[in-house]
Amino acid sequence: MTKHYEPPKQGWFGQIFDSLFVLALVYLSLMLPLLFKAKEAASAAAGAAAEAVKPTWESLQLSPVVQEQWEKLGYDAEKAAALINTKFDYTIDPVWLVITAVVLIGYFVFMLKVSDKEYRQVIAEKFGK
């Protein structure tokens, strides 16, 4: 039989501190991407200013039925063009792809390894050696 582990009791202050700590972490990770987004938005705005030709329904070359649905939704050519011309950029940066993959896989490997170590202690205490 392995030694029984008796955990310390946590006081009020520690309990409150720990709850707040997790919260602070969440907010931080919500805010973090904003820093990058601000940069992207600035460069996108610069690009949009370059092509400032006023669009018309004709220049958008939509079929009459499609144009009718846009109008039913309350859109004029200019507003519709803004949506039609917004596009995702799917060029893949291989460096970032590799970094992301390594972080993701590393996270799972780390978690499984540590969990396994802790799990063996649990089993040893529960069922004996």
Binding site: H4, P7, L25, S29, Y107, F110, E125, K126
Partner: peptide
């Protein structure tokens, strides 16, 4: 994606170092 993973990684380290000592094993 990266920032959310960062959150879970930091939280995991924090759990191992600080929180797990309060947990009864068996």
């Amino acid at each position: 994606l990266l920032s959310i993973l960062a959150f879970y990684i930091v939280a995991s380290i924090w759990f191992s170092v600080r929180r797990y000592k309060f947990v009864k094993r068996a």
